[in-house]
C-alpha cells in the first residue's frame, strides 16, 4: 500500500511541468524514503532525476518499493484539474493496476478523485554515479532561464566556460556570436538567492545544446536558484532544489568537438 499526502499540491504541478517536454512516460519509484523518478528522453541525450522525500509530505506510507509506471502526458492533464492550493493525495496498492489521485480544496468544499491506469515500463538500467564536480555555479534561476533563451536566439550550442573569475556563456550562429559573462558577487548586498557563486577546483569548458538547456529551465518556478555542476568530459548537471522536499536534476551529455 502506498499513500502520500502533499499539502502544497501546486508543487506537483510544477514538477510535472518541468519534465513534460522531455519524457512522455516514466516509472515513479515509490520507496519508504520518498518518491523518485529517473528517466532519459527518447534520444538518450538528457536524463531527469526527481526526488520528493517522504519528510516533505504531510502523511507518507509506503510498505514496500513499488514501481508506478505512468503516462506523463495524461498525468499532466489530470493534475490540471487540481487547484494549485489543493491538497493532493496519491494512493495505490502494492501491485498497482491503477493509481488514485485525490484533490481536496483548501477550504474543503470540493473533493475530486481521479483514477489512472498504470503502465509497465521497462526502464533501461540507469546508474547515475555520485559525482564531485570540479566546477559548481549557483546563480539565480530566472537569470539562467533568460540567458539560455537569449543565447538560443543566436546559436544552437552554448559553450560554458567556468574559471574562478566567473562563468562565460558563448554561442555562435549565422548572425554572429554572443558572449555573456556572469561574475560571482559574494560581497554584494543582494539576498542569498540573488547571488552568483562559483566554487572551482579546476577550470572547465564544454559545449551543450541550448534546446535541452531551455527545456530544463521549465523547472525555474520550483526554485529561486539553479546549480550547475561540471567536470571535464562528463555530462553537466542542472539542479533545481525543492525547498524541504528534494530536487529536480537534469543531466545533459556534452557536444564533442569533431
Amino acid at each position: 500500500m502506498f499513500e502520500a499526502r502533499l499539502l502544497q499540491g501546486g508543487l506537483l504541478k510544477k514538477v510535472l511541468d518541468s519534465i513534460k517536454d522531455i519524457i512522455t512516460e516514466g516509472n515513479f519509484d515509490c520507496s519508504p524514503n520518498g518518491l523518485s523518478l529517473q528517466a532519459m528522453d527518447s534520444s538518450h541525450v538528457s536524463l531527469i532525476d526527481i526526488l520528493l522525500e517522504s519528510e516533505g509530505f504531510e502523511h507518507y506510507r509506503c510498505d514496500r518499493n513499488i514501481p508506478m509506471g505512468l503516462n506523463i502526458t495524461n498525468l499532466v492533464k489530470m493534475i490540471k484539474c487540481a487547484g494549485s492550493e489543493d491538497i493532493v493525495t496519491i494512493k495505490c496498492e502494492d501491485k498497482p493496476d491503477n493509481v488514485t489521485f485525490l484533490f481536496e480544496s483548501k477550504d474543503n468544499d470540493k473533493i475530486s478523485d481521479f483514477e489512472m491506469k498504470t503502465m509497465t515500463i521497462d526502464d533501461e538500467h540507469l546508474l547515475v554515479p555520485d559525482q564531485t564536480y570540479t566546477a559548481v555555479v549557483k546563480m539565480p534561476s530566472a537569470e539562467f532561464q533568460r540567458l539560455c533563451r537569449d543565447m538560443a536566439a543566436i546559436g544552437d550550442t552554448v559553450n560554458i566556460s567556468v574559471t574562478k573569475e566567473g562563468v562565460r556563456f558563448s554561442t555562435t550562429g549565422d548572425m554572429g556570436t554572443a558572449n555573456i559573462t556572469v561574475r560571482p558577487n559574494p560581497s554584494g548586498d543582494q539576498k542569498e538567492e540573488e547571488r552568483t557563486e562559483v566554487q572551482i577546483t579546476e577550470p572547465v569548458s564544454a559545449g551543450f545544446a541550448l534546446r535541452y538547456l531551455n527545456s530544463f529551465t521549465k523547472a525555474t518556478p520550483l526554485s529561486p536558484t539553479v546549480t550547475l555542476g561540471m567536470v571535464p568530459n562528463l555530462p553537466i548537471v542542472v539542479e533545481y532544489k525543492i525547498a524541504d522536499m528534494g530536487h529536480v536534476r537534469y543531466y545533459l551529455a556534452p557536444k564533442i568537438e569533431d
Binding site: 532519459m40 538518450h44 533501461e124 540507469l126 546508474l127 559545449g207 555530462p235 543531466y251 551529455a253 564533442i256
Partner: peptide, 14 residues
Amino acid sequence: EGSQETLDFYFLDV
C-alpha cells in the same frame, strides 16, 4: 558545432 554525445556512454549500467 560538434556532435552530440548520448548519456548511454556515461550512465547505462550494462
